[in-house]
C-alpha cells in the first residue's frame, strides 16, 4: 500500500481570486486517518492558510461537512483508506455560498429553523410542582430518530430542490419540526403546520430521497417529509369535511 495520498482541495481566497481554484496536497495515508485528519495535516505541516471547519472529530458536532469525491460527507467519518489510491477531491458543501476555501455560509438554515419552532410548545405550562412530563418508551420511540439530527447540512447539500430554489425550507428543518410534532409533550403541531403547508414547506419536496441517503445520523428527513405530507393532506381534508368543533 502506498504511504501517501493526494488531496485535491478547493481553495477560494476572496481577497485575491474571484473564483475557486484547486490545490493539491500529498498527505500520509495513515491506517485510521479520516479526510479531516488529512486536512489537519495540511493545515499543521504544509499550508496554514487552508480554512475549514471542524470540532469534535467524532460525528457529533456536525461542523465538518464537505463534499468528498462528489458526495456530501462528514470528513471526520470518511476514511482516506476507503479512497485509496486517490486522489481525493475535497470541495465545500454544495448549495451554500462559499465564504472561504471549504467554509460555507449556512445562515439561511439558521434563519429558517426557528420558524418551525423546534422546541416543545405548550398551550399552558404545567407548574413545576406537578413534576416532569412523563413519557413512555413507545412515545420516545416515535420521535427519537428525528432528534438525532446534528445540523450538519449534508442533506441540504444533497437536495436539488434546495439547490434550485433556496426558499425551500429544506430537509433537516422539516425533520426537526416533525421531531416536536411527534413528541407526546408537545402541543405546537398546528402552528408548525401553518408554516410548513406553504409551497416552500413540505410541498416543495419532490421526494428525490438523497437527503436520507447522505444523512450520517439515520434521521431519514425524506421519510419525515412524506409522513408530514400525509398528515397535512388529512388535516386539509378534515377542515373541509368536519365542523369546526370536531377537528
Amino acid at each position: 500500500m502506498a504511504d501517501s495520498i493526494t488531496l485535491q482541495v478547493t481553495r477560494y481566497r476572496p481577497e485575491e481570486e474571484s473564483e475557486p481554484t484547486i490545490q493539491e496536497y500529498d498527505v500520509p495515508l495513515g491506517r485510521q486517518w479520516s479526510v479531516l485528519d488529512g486536512l489537519n495535516y495540511v493545515k499543521d505541516q504544509i499550508d496554514g492558510t487552508l480554512s475549514f471547519r471542524w470540532s469534535c472529530r467524532m460525528g457529533i458536532c456536525g461542523s465538518c461537512g464537505m463534499t468528498v469525491n462528489g458526495e456530501p460527507k462528514l470528513t471526520c467519518g470518511a476514511f482516506l483508506t476507503d479512497y485509496a489510491p486517490g486522489p481525493v477531491r475535497v470541495e465545500p458543501l454544495a448549495n451554500f455560498p462559499v465564504i472561504r476555501d471549504l467554509v460555507v455560509e449556512i445562515g439561511d438554515f439558521i434563519r429558517k429553523l426557528p420558524s418551525v419552532q423546534p422546541w416543545i410548545v405548550r398551550e399552558e405550562e404545567r407548574p413545576v410542582s406537578e413534576g416532569e412530563y412523563l413519557q413512555t418508551p413507545e412515545e420516545l420511540d416515535d420521535y427519537q430518530q428525528y432528534s438525532m439530527c446534528i445540523n450538519c447540512m449534508l442533506c441540504y447539500a444533497a437536495c436539488p430542490v434546495y439547490g434550485l430554489d433556496p426558499e425551500f425550507m429544506g430537509p433537516a428543518a422539516i425533520a426537526l419540526a416533525q421531531r416536536y410534532n411527534l413528541d407526546s409533550r408537545d402541543e405546537g403541531s398546528r402552528e408548525r403546520l401553518d408554516v410548513l403547508i406553504e409551497h416552500e414547506g413540505i410541498w416543495g419536496c419532490t421526494f428525490v430521497g438523497e437527503c436520507t441517503a447522505v444523512c450520517p445520523k439515520g434521521v431519514d428527513p425524506a421519510g419525515a417529509i412524506q409522513r408530514y405530507k400525509l398528515t397535512a393532506a388529512t388535516e386539509t381534508l378534515k377542515s373541509f369535511l368536519l365542523p369546526r368543533g370536531a377537528r
Binding site: P14, E15, A94, P97, V98, E105, P160, T206, G209, E210
Partner: peptide, 26 residues
Amino acid sequence: TEFHPRWYRRQMSTWWWLGKRAYLVF
C-alpha cells in the same frame, strides 16, 4: 469581515440530474 460580500455562489447546471444515479432515477 472585510470580504463579507464576496461569498462565492455556485450555480446549479441544467444537467445536474446527470451527475448522480439517484438524481437520474428521480
